[in-house]
């Protein structure tokens, strides 16, 4: 009986020690390009992301073929001419929540977060930084952030014939519905 109790306590302790990771497989990333000629939006609702509430390590993985554009032709150009998704099917971001120690996951509320890391896309890796918000509610965290990327930084060439239709800088909006990982 005592042994069972000890075992139960040990099991509970191990859960509290190891269940510090939050995960989503249905996060959303929106690309938005705005020019006087045309506004273009692409949505990806199958973004996977995991972060560790102790260390602050955070990782995102996005398959580029999951981006949906309003026009099929735009989607085709995005995949074939710009991100070349047959050759580079995935983009990843690996980084840190730099102010993780200021977050209290046991207390519901909104916490500003500073994220910095390395974004790999189209075979190029660059440092990126973004300010965001983590809304903690029970076992869930709604993470939101917005930042700008310049396609040319990732060696993505926009032909001059469509240059006036695609913004120099693309706005990236990230919305992640994390849940505590039960592994």
């Amino acid at each position: 009986m005592k042994k069972t109790l000890l075992f139960a306590i040990a099991a509970l302790l191990s859960i509290s020690v190891f269940s510090q990771r939050y995960f989503t497989r249905s996060g959303e990333i929106v690309f938005y390009s705005s020019t006087p000629v045309e506004d273009i939006e692409a949505i990806n609702k199958t973004v996977a992301s995991v972060f560790d509430a102790k260390s602050g390590k955070i990782e995102f993985a996005v398959t580029l073929k999951s981006f949906v554009f309003e026009k099929a032709l735009m989607q085709e150009h995005f995949n074939e001419n710009y991100v070349e998704s047959d050759t580079y099917p995935k983009a990843t971001l690996k980084g840190d929540i730099q102010n993780i120690s200021e977050l209290n996951f046991a207390k519901d509320g909104n916490y500003p977060v500073k994220i910095a890391g390395k974004l790999t896309m189209h075979g190029v890796t660059k440092d990126v930084a973004a300010d965001g918000n983590f809304a903690v509610k029970g076992n869930t965290v709604l993470g939101t952030a917005k930042f700008m990327i310049n396609p040319e930084d990732y060696n993505i060439k926009i032909p001059s014939v469509v240059r006036n239709k695609i913004a120099e800088e693309i706005e990236v909006t990230v919305t992640m519905n994390y849940e505590l990982m039960k592994k």
């Binding site: 497989r25 199958t46 973004v47 996977a48 995991v50 993985a61 996005v62 398959t63 580029l64 073929k65 999951s66 099917p89 995935k90």
Partner: peptide
Amino acid sequence: GHCTGFAFDVILV
């Protein structure tokens, strides 16, 4: 579904 690659899981859309 349409396989768009691998991001922790294999993804079908």
